[in-house]
């Protein structure tokens, strides 16, 4: 217990001090990692904790990115209002799509999430009047306002702490969720759905809840990402973006909340640097996915930890 507390404090101190000490490009990479870490945790709630393997989370990433962008662009709403709009829209989409996908489960779930994703991507490419299509839309990031105070997201240090606070808040909320009785039931459903139902749990309701919570935080990640890039395009719906959380989870280990974050920290810089010198880096990702599930299905990190603990 005490060790853990020390670890938490240490991590916090490091994260806070890095904000003004890191060189620009590493700070920029860290900001990306913070944003995608939220996405990774959101996926873990869905797959790692509830056992629902989605291959279409980019839908919520994209919906929320535009949910934030469009109000700012067209009506100049302030940051908090647009963020709220983005999240509310994402939750509505989450409920509607979840209602169709969650009920059937298994292979149907995978297939339906893929279909949603591919169709939304197609729509985003085609409805240029709304999304800007492949070229996308740019906008001016609104100021961060707290009463009389205001900060500019054009300052990378501000962005660093802004995104970090969202990551920490998301972590605390999701940690709380999985430590609550609800979280226990989600795990039970992952472990044995039939048994959970036989002792009186409405499995559909819990699975839908996990789906919507996951959509919400994926959406938060997407909205923050569009805020950071001050841009969104059809690519924010790209199915490749739905593969990302699967890779993070595979590498970091499912059902641990922090594991997938480790996945982001390991994979994103890797993709970034490999991508610079080899444009076909996706084939490495593909090979990595095959390799991991065949040889190290508990996640590379999870397996390493197991080995260290055993030795």
């Amino acid at each position: 217990m005490k060790n853990r507390l020390i670890l938490y404090v240490l991590v916090l101190v490091i994260l806070f001090s890095l904000g003004f000490t890191l060189p620009t490009d590493m700070r920029s990479l860290s900001i990306d990692i913070f944003i995608f870490a939220i996405y990774a945790m959101a996926y873990d709630i869905l797959y790692g904790y509830t056992g629902q393997f989605s291959y279409g989370q980019a839908v919520f990433f994209g919906v929320a990115a535009y949910g934030l962008l469009l109000p700012v662009l067209h009506t100049n709403t302030n940051l908090w209002v647009s963020l709220t709009i983005a999240l509310v829209i994402t939750v509505v989409f989450g409920i509607v799509l979840g209602f169709l996908a969650v009920r059937l489960g298994g292979a149907y779930f995978v297939i339906i999430t893929i279909i949603f994703n591919l169709t939304f991507y197609l729509i985003a490419l085609d409805w240029i009047w709304l999304t800007g299509g492949d070229d996308g839309l740019t906008f001016r990031a609104p100021k961060i306002e707290f009463g009389v105070f205001s900060l500019s997201l054009y300052d990378p240090v501000v962005t660093y702490y802004f995104m970090l606070s969202f990551l920490l808040a998301s972590y605390l909320i999701l940690k709380r969720l999985i430590s609550s009785p609800i979280g226990k039931v989600l795990i039970a459903i992952r472990e044995n759905e039939e048994r959970a139902q036989l002792i009186g749990y409405n499995v559909f309701r819990y699975k839908l809840l996990a789906y919507v919570v996951s959509a919400l935080f994926t959406g938060l990640s997407g909205a923050l990402y569009s805020l950071r890039t001050r841009y969104a395009s059809a690519d924010y719906f790209n199915i490749a973006l739905s593969v990302q959380p699967i890779i993070w989870t595979l590498v970091g280990g499912a059902g641990t909340l922090t594991g997938p974050i480790v996945g982001v920290i390991l994979i994103n810089p890797l993709i970034y640097y490999i991508g610079v010198w080899w444009k076909h880096y996706l084939s490495i990702i593909g090979a990595l996915m095959i390799f991991v599930v065949i040889y190290s299905p508990k996640g590379i990190v999870g397996n390493l930890i197991n080995k260290i603990e055993k030795s």
Binding site: H280, I285, A287, M289, P297
Partner: peptide, 18 residues
């Protein structure tokens, strides 16, 4: 292991495409 077969075929899909 249905989820894993999906992962494997996604990986395969990337390799073929690239």
């Amino acid at each position: 292991l249905p989820a894993f077969t999906v992962v494997v075929t996604i990986g395969l899909s990337y390799i073929i495409q690239q």
